[in-house]
Design a protein around this nucleic acid. Structure first.
Lengths: 188, 188, 188, 188
DNA sequence: CATGAATGAGCGTTCATTCAT
DNA sequence: GATGAATGAACGCTCATTCAT
């Protein structure tokens, strides 16, 4: 019967946190995040019990946004190479178009306030992507290495590629392709 | 640069900072670092003007330690493949044997208190390694991409490989080899 | 005084406040009291304008509960000694059986949010008891001291006795008697 | 070799806490206590690790001040009656002359941040007084009740008497005597 | 120079109270 | 009236940095 909790406000806080963390790092004051989100200081804590909770939720939010972007419109019947390139392109686009989300995710990824549970959930949301990766691994020269290692290689190359695209946006598309070729050579 | 009295103390502080940052992140109190180093609270600031200065110096220290480990004993006359593998093995060993240094370096690498000057110096200190990389790039399939991109790919794969080695130490040597093969396929 | 809708809710809040204050002290959040009472956060403030008002009302409620227990079933025609002992026993029983009310009353009694008006009203509510006390005073060795002093002595001894009864419940009845004897010797 | 911790400052904080607590209750901000003591906000915490620690230390300080005042100049060879009256007078004087200390001690005494250890230590500092009480108990009509009960009675009457003296300072000395007579009748 | 007490701005969080639903 | 989200002042405590010893 009372004013319901607003999903919009929650999202505004998450978006503000993304921006503020990208700009100031994880030490950014919650008060600044709240202000940036257009809510009061105290309201942040009705949506997220602690700053750490906010971090964990944001981590998942960003990770799943990235994952779902990557597999968006995946051509299910195309060749593995085509499917992977499609996904790769989506991934690179997400990284290039959302540098703040990416930076925030990087920072959250290395900080130790993210719980093992969140990290596990982070893997879950990547399931679609993981399934594709698994097929690539199983049919390529890395068929004998573990999935985590395989995934980690792929992620690393992706990160390096996005960095490169951001630093030289004029040639972004070409860098995207080069990165993919590197990856394909490594794993095919 | 007026050398402070005791190089030992300076080193103790850097070593303590490495440990403490690895354990607690960059938010760790300077007082704790000082304590861990066996010096007083205030003394830390006679060796490093600010916490940020300490971070920048430590970043360089760690990066150059890593770089010099990597090129240690480089067989100058061997084939490129042999030289690279030698370096790669050194690098992997450094990473496996100094997880705290590596974690501290990772955290420092993504935080924005590290100045562009420090990052540039970080590259300088990698000169020996960079020269080898440059030769690999120039003679391989990535001859048309920029050095930063090439280096970034190599670093990424290295990081992924070290992670893997640390998580499964029993097979470390084998993972080292697999990582190298991945890299070689990607760049040869 | 416009009665709020539900006297039940008001009482539930007072009872909850008693429990919560006994457990957590006067710093206990109003939200917790509301929760414990089974009403919403905001509703508490339709029954009590401020937290201070709640405290003042509760103070009176507890004090009058104690006072009316004390004089319950007073044998009007018995000797003073018998009347006083009857009252004393009631008082001790109230204290032993309602430790939370007693503790809350103690805390409220020393905090300075209780207004002089409330304290005055607290005396009014003790009128029945006071009248008996007055007769005791006037006929005993303390006939020359002021009533407040006399009452305060009696209250003090009562409190000490209840404490003792609570700490050694096995002998409660005996302690009750001993306390009364002390009092009687002091005032007779 | 550095600036030593100043006992003066510690005492200033304790004195300030006494005043501020007496005036505002236990909810008084530490910042106000610090200000009143003439030290910075943060300095308070170099002398007392937490607000609760400050409360516990202050409790002991006040209690031992009271206890040592009470037994000051005790005429060891006088009669029990004379000895007790001497102590009683000291006690009453302490209470009358230090109303803030007394109020702070009252508040601290009922709050549940005071640890059982502090309460135990509080009894220890009253040892001198307790020994005298014990002799009174053993030779009087309360010889069959436990010491804690006896002590609690005595304390209660003392508190009531001090209150009375404070409220009517003109007759303080006389009230002191009356209170003592009440006590003596109760226990002799 | 070494020490560690002093400083005070700053932070995460709480909570009495208000107000939209 | 009932609800619980919204508000923002306030609080306890931390910590980089300074400075007296």
């Amino acid at each position: 019967m009372a004013r319901p909790r607003s999903e919009d406000k929650r999202n505004a806080i998450l978006a503000a946190a993304t921006r503020v963390i990208a700009a100031q790092g994880l030490g950014a004051p919650t008060a600044l995040i709240a202000q940036e989100a257009g809510v009061s200081n105290g309201s942040l804590f009705t949506y997220f019990k602690t700053k750490t909770d906010l971090f964990n939720d944001l981590y998942l939010e960003l990770k799943s946004g990235m994952a779902s972007s990557a597999v968006d419109g995946l051509p299910a019947r195309a060749s593995l190479h085509r499917q992977l390139f499609h996904t790769w392109s989506n991934w690179m686009r997400w990284g290039s178009e959302h540098p703040e989300r990416r930076r925030a995710l990087t920072l959250l990824g290395v900080c130790d306030e993210i719980t093992p549970q969140s990290r596990a959930a982070g893997h879950t949301v990547m399931a679609g992507l993981a399934e594709l990766m698994e097929r690539c691994r199983a049919h390529g020269s890395m068929r004998n290495v573990s999935m985590p290692f395989f995934a980690s290689i792929m992620t690393s190359v992706a990160d390096a590629t996005i960095d490169h695209m951001i630093q030289d946006p004029g040639q972004a598309e070409q860098h995207c392709k080069v990165g993919f070729d590197v990856l394909w050579r490594a794993i095919a």
